[in-house]
């Protein structure tokens, strides 16, 4: 079987013209992920973990390297050079990204946020409605919040919504950037349960977790930024 993701020799350097400064994001990272695998990235702060995820999501473009992604729709795509419409399609249908931060449009309710995410995958409105309620209930988001604007949600509520929005798409590849960093134990457990469920469904995942221990058992491999390779 082909790997879902085969990133080879990725290097990213940021140039700040005003300061005439270069900042290293990451150097020579190669990560290969087989279908259904859950891979964790470890490394100290500033070692480039988030940079790697953003390169895969195409928020950043690397100076060197290729990112071969095995798409359901397009076959093998190099995410470093794919055209923008292809990347937008993949973001809607196949590649999910969750960080600690929720970017929301003002005056869009929690329910609309999740429904929109489902509609982007091409499912119908009826399915979007029922599935949204199921997932919001799963994450134990208070019913009174479903039709309110997330601007006023607590940190934990925002996070649960953020994760719900990415997970309802059942993406082929899910990128997780410390999604549980500021969650309480109970909320973390809900996230863990859903990740486990996604894994059982065959979702491929690449994640950064503060305490990878907590994900223990789910994680198949660890990539160490300092070693520049998988740990044994």
């Amino acid at each position: 079987m082909r790997p879902v993701l085969d990133a080879q020799n990725l290097s990213k350097r940021f140039t700040i013209h005003q300061l005439d400064k270069h900042i290293t994001g990451c150097t020579d990272v190669s990560i290969r992920i087989e279908p259904g695998e859950f891979v964790g990235i470890t490394g100290r702060s500033g070692s480039g973990k988030s940079t790697v995820l953003k390169l895969i999501y195409r928020t950043y473009l690397p100076q060197e390297g290729t990112i071969l992604y095995d798409s359901n729709e397009f076959g093998t795509v190099d995410l470093t050079s794919a055209d923008e419409q292809t990347v937008i399609y993949l973001r809607h249908h196949e590649i999910g990204y969750v960080s600690q931060f929720l970017n929301v449009i003002p005056r869009t309710t929690a329910r609309e946020i999740v429904e929109t995410a489902i509609l982007e995958t091409g499912r119908d409105a009826e399915f979007a409605r029922t599935e949204t309620e199921r997932i919001l209930a799963h994450f134990e988001l208070d019913r009174e919040l479903w039709d309110s604007y997330p601007n006023n949600f607590s940190g934990g509520e925002k996070l649960r919504l953020n994760i719900a929005r990415a997970m309802v798409k059942h993406p082929r590849l899910l990128l997780l950037d410390e999604p549980t960093a500021s969650l309480d134990g109970r909320s973390k457990e809900r996230v863990r349960l859903l990740i486990e469920q996604l894994k059982n469904e065959g979702t491929t995942m690449l994640g950064i977790f503060h305490d990878l221990e907590f994900m223990g058992g789910l994680c198949d491999k660890e990539y160490s930024m300092s070693l520049g390779s998988f740990t044994a």
Binding site: F14, I16, H17, R58, T59, Y60, I88
Partner: peptide, 15 residues
């Protein structure tokens, strides 16, 4: 892509 322009701007003016 908009997130790319905002998070990884390349041109000095965009920065």
């Amino acid at each position: 892509l908009t997130d790319q322009i905002l998070e990884d701007p390349q041109h000095p003016y965009t920065q």
